[in-house]
Design a protein around this nucleic acid. Structure first.
Lengths: 118, 118
DNA sequence: GGTAGCTGCTCACTTTTAGTAAGCAAAGAT
DNA sequence: ATCTTTGCTTACTAAAAGTGAGCAGCTACC
């Protein structure tokens, strides 16, 4: 067996699948970040996640709620106020978000730089 | 401003979006892991990524190739042999994969544990 | 040399998901 | 009274994913 840089072999695929089942898709992580950075109302999130629609946001928030990453709170009014907040458990996703963000940053750099390496 | 655990605020959303544009979806990371763990032929990958279909695999591989994460090589035969391999650049995704794998592992543990306390 | 099998796909089709635009009830602001 | 904002939902359309079959090129076997 040649020495590769991968010690993760047997558990990787199933665990990754488990994670992806919860967190894959275009929007979920972005929504979590939006929430974590202080956007707690529906329209607020909608505005801060560029490109998302009400419909998809509503659905994604339901998913996130079901996965216990987000809590929806209704403060009976009037005016009725709906607030979303990340649950502590969602913080366990920080490493994922961090890694992806780093990679995205780097990838953009790479894409920008293609073709001009002296 | 209250001291939260997030130093990543301004660049997070765009970088994350960049990353997700390349890497989000149910299959791409799983395919990369399959490749990295020694499955280099089409049918081999297909078999090792449970649930994927030929059609989707073909499409995902094309995407990955276009993003310069994977290279397709045809060794003219006969028998014609098609091989896929992860390019070194794909290794930069290791932290992402690692983080997701860890999270998936933990999440499964959490889910298993719900409902049977006390 | 016929038939069965594997490989690396593609094609036609159905189902699921995402996206778009409009709208709606309750409230607030002017 | 009218207009705007909020937190959604509802129809509709478009795109993507999944399903099953199939196909060319080769091998393997008897």
């Amino acid at each position: 067996m040649p020495p590769t840089n991968m010690g993760h072999c047997l558990t990787t695929l199933p665990s990754l699948r488990d994670a992806l089942d919860v967190v894959s898709g275009k929007w979920k992580l972005l929504i979590l970040v939006a929430l974590a950075t202080g956007h707690q109302r529906f329209r607020d999130i909608e505005r801060s996640v560029p490109g998302i629609s009400s419909k998809v946001l509503a659905k994604e928030l339901k998913d996130l709620e079901q996965h216990q990453l987000v809590r929806r709170t209704v403060q009976e009014g009037p005016p009725v106020l709906v607030t979303y907040e990340v649950l502590p458990y969602a913080d366990t996703l920080d490493p994922v978000i961090f890694a992806l963000r780093e990679w995205g940053l780097n990838h953009r750099r790479k894409i920008m730089g293609t073709g001009s390496e002296a």
